[in-house]
Amino acid sequence: MDIPVQIKQQSCMDCLSGQSLGFEIKMAFQPIIDWQQKEIFAYEALVRGPEGQGAGWVFERINDKNKYYFDQSCRVKAIETASRLGCDRLLSINFLPNAVYNPETCIRATIEAATLFHFDLEKIIFEVTETEEIINQEKLKRIFESYARHGFRTAIDDFGSGFAGLEWLYSLRPAILKLDMTLIRDIHLDEAKQQRLAAVQQVCRELGAMILAEGIEVEEERDFLVNAGIRYLQGYLFARPALEHLAGQDEINGWQ
């Protein structure tokens, strides 16, 4: 059954106001580039405080009582801001799996926000950070399956720094795997990291998952990854997150 527009507007505007959190949140955006096509592939939405304070400032104010509302507010704020800025690329939104009480309810809120702010649902990627302790792994699997049924892309962020081993990928089957910067840092100099990358690539080929390398800071890291067959790249070498701004093609560094 369709939800009346006025109810959609009230629920989304409540999330945008930050009233239940006690403070406003804003979004910064960092581009993800397609090295093969030399173009921007997507933008990752990253939470910030009302005056641009970093994510650490925000998460200091999040607890078990407001975690669910915070998760919903981030989705709505990311979609609203990206739409207002004219985003015509994929939009990657982080979610907190331990805050998702019912994936269908959370999806409904996302659909309401996308409808209200005229954002294409097919452009949304939901990514879970691997560093958050997963209380119930089966629950995370159900969340991923629910998102996939609705046509959303799913991603594991920070792979290599937390809960997910290679065998866990076969269960979750993410559309995108984001390699953590600890694996990327100085990978051109570290044979053990290079072997780890090759193992991850093999599993992702079997699953049909896309690999994205994040946290790239120097050209040597970029060049090794590109030569190893990694197409999608993210990091300070190309662009830093910008508050309420989508970096244009001409603002991206490191194309050479």
Rank of each mutant, 00 (worst) to 15 (best):
K26Q: 13
R48Q: 08
F59K: 03
E60W: 00
G52P: 06
K26P: 01
E60L: 08
L16S: 10
G22P: 02
K26V: 09
A28F: 11
E60N: 13
E51Y: 12
G54H: 15
A45Q: 06
P31V: 02
I32V: 12
F29L: 01
E60I: 00
Y43G: 00
A45R: 06
A55S: 12
L16M: 09
D34S: 05
I62Y: 11
Q37I: 06
P50F: 13
E39H: 07
I33N: 04
W35Y: 11
V47C: 14
R48K: 09
G18D: 09
Q36N: 10
F23M: 07
E24P: 01
E24A: 07
E39F: 01
E51K: 15
F23T: 06
Q19L: 14
I62H: 03
F23I: 13
F59L: 15
I33C: 02
G22S: 09
N63I: 11
A45E: 07
I62R: 04
E39P: 00
A28E: 01
L21T: 01
M27S: 12
A55M: 13
E51Q: 15
G49S: 12
L21P: 00
Q19R: 14
V47W: 02
Q53N: 06
L46A: 01
W35P: 00
E44G: 04
P31N: 04
G49K: 07
G56K: 09
S17D: 04
P31C: 02
G18C: 04
G52W: 08
F29Q: 00
V58P: 01
S20V: 02
P31A: 07
I32A: 01
A55W: 01
Y43M: 01
E60R: 06
D34P: 05
P31I: 04
K26N: 08
A55K: 07
W57D: 15
S20K: 15
V47G: 02
K38V: 13
A42G: 02
W35C: 07
P31Y: 06
L16R: 08
A45N: 11
V47R: 03
S17Y: 14
G54Y: 07
D64E: 14
D64K: 05
Q53D: 03
Q36H: 12
E44T: 10
Q53L: 07
E51N: 15
F23P: 11
S20I: 06
G54M: 14
F41L: 09
V58N: 08
V58T: 15
Q53P: 02
I25L: 10
W35T: 12
S20H: 13
D34W: 04
G56H: 13
E39L: 08
S20P: 00
I62D: 13
S20C: 08
D34E: 08
A45C: 07
E39C: 15
F41C: 01
G52N: 10
I32E: 05
N63S: 13
F41H: 15
S20M: 12
P50R: 11
S20Q: 13
E24M: 13
E44F: 03
E44P: 05
P50E: 15
R61E: 12
W57S: 10
E39V: 14
V58E: 09
